[in-house]
Simulated scan of single mutants.
Amino acid sequence: MRKYLAAGAVAAAAVLLAACGSGQVGQSGSNGSAPPPNKNLVLIPGVQAEPFYISMQCGAQAEAQKLGYTLDTSAPQKFDAALQTEKVNALGSNPPAALLIAPTDDTAMLAPIQQVANRGTKIVQVDTSLKDSSLAVSSISSDNTQGGQLGADTLAQLVGDRPGSVLVLDTIAGTSTTAARAAGFTEQLKKYPNLKALEVQFTQNEPEQAAAKVTAALAATPDLIGIFATNLNTGEGAATGLRNAGKIGQVNLIGFDASPAEVTGLRNGEYQALIAQDPAEIGKQGVDQAVAALEGKPVTPKITAGLHSITKSDLDASSQYFYKQSC
């Protein structure tokens, strides 16, 4: 009997030692199971509390939940490369499986995004992009050049043959999306000899600065007939400038995006047209491409979202393109 007990003790010790050895070769858990896959996604938009990016977040969140992933959003307080870099750096040593990001500067954001990519995170660009997009598995945005062209065509239809000058308000130099819109608009406007684009003015994405630029343009340009604002903050500031000068309806304001304030402004005659994007679809597609990359499925490197010209006459029929303030 003593021999059998001793043999059993030796066998048990051997099993225990084998189990410890299996743990030492890197398997997770006492049963040797593999670690669970990282299903955490992070969205870092351009700025917080902006209806465009809120709508994008809503689309991304819904799609992530549908596909069995989690998505956290971390947005800077202002559209600023330094503030966005802080958000990217905060991902630290626990990077997400994929990062969806709208770079606030097409050059300055390269280094911090590169650091995250070096940790194995898949990068998807949404809305804006870097000059060097090789880090990203996919980039999803509107065709912003086409959006600018659509704005010029819409303005030309509104003013007819009347001659005049047109102010173009951009946001911050180095912002890929708004730069493309401004360039597309000014180039397309050359097709209409009765309209002349003034030098592009930058607003630093601040409505107050946009209002001040409009005030200055009205004083210096008596024949000002139109304004093209390249995003919602610039458009809202331009509307304020026209309102303060008593020029609402006298100068045609073409805004980009369709925030609640812009939609109300179009309904009230402060805007004459809006060029609306589809940010919820951009967010959805961003998640789809990130998940495809993570799961080894085919990825589409570049996706173009739709654009829509909205005037007061078709406002109600275009409600599906209005941006949200909450999900």
Rank of each mutant, 00 (worst) to 15 (best):
S139P: 03
E270M: 11
D278F: 14
E50H: 03
P279V: 13
G246A: 05
E50D: 13
E281V: 15
A9D: 03
L195K: 03
T221V: 15
D143K: 04
E295P: 13
I101M: 06
A12V: 13
L5M: 07
L294D: 10
G148K: 06
V263A: 12
A292S: 09
L294S: 08
E262D: 15
A276Q: 03
I248T: 15
V159S: 12
L307I: 11
G68I: 06
V159C: 08
T73R: 02
S133F: 05
K302M: 10
S165I: 04
A173C: 00
Y192S: 11
T264C: 03
D223H: 11
P96L: 05
G148I: 05
A220W: 02
Y192I: 08
G265R: 01
A97N: 13
G46A: 07
L99T: 13
L83H: 03
V251R: 04
D143Q: 10
A292Y: 09
L43N: 00
T300F: 03
Q27H: 08
E187D: 15
K213C: 06
D72C: 00
N268I: 04
E199Q: 15
E206K: 01
A197Q: 00
T311K: 12
L5A: 11
S176Q: 06
N94V: 10
I282H: 01
A258P: 05
I303A: 03
A14M: 09
A90H: 06
P207I: 01
T304P: 05
A7Y: 02
A180Q: 15
Q146P: 00
V214F: 03
F202K: 13
L17R: 00
G306V: 14
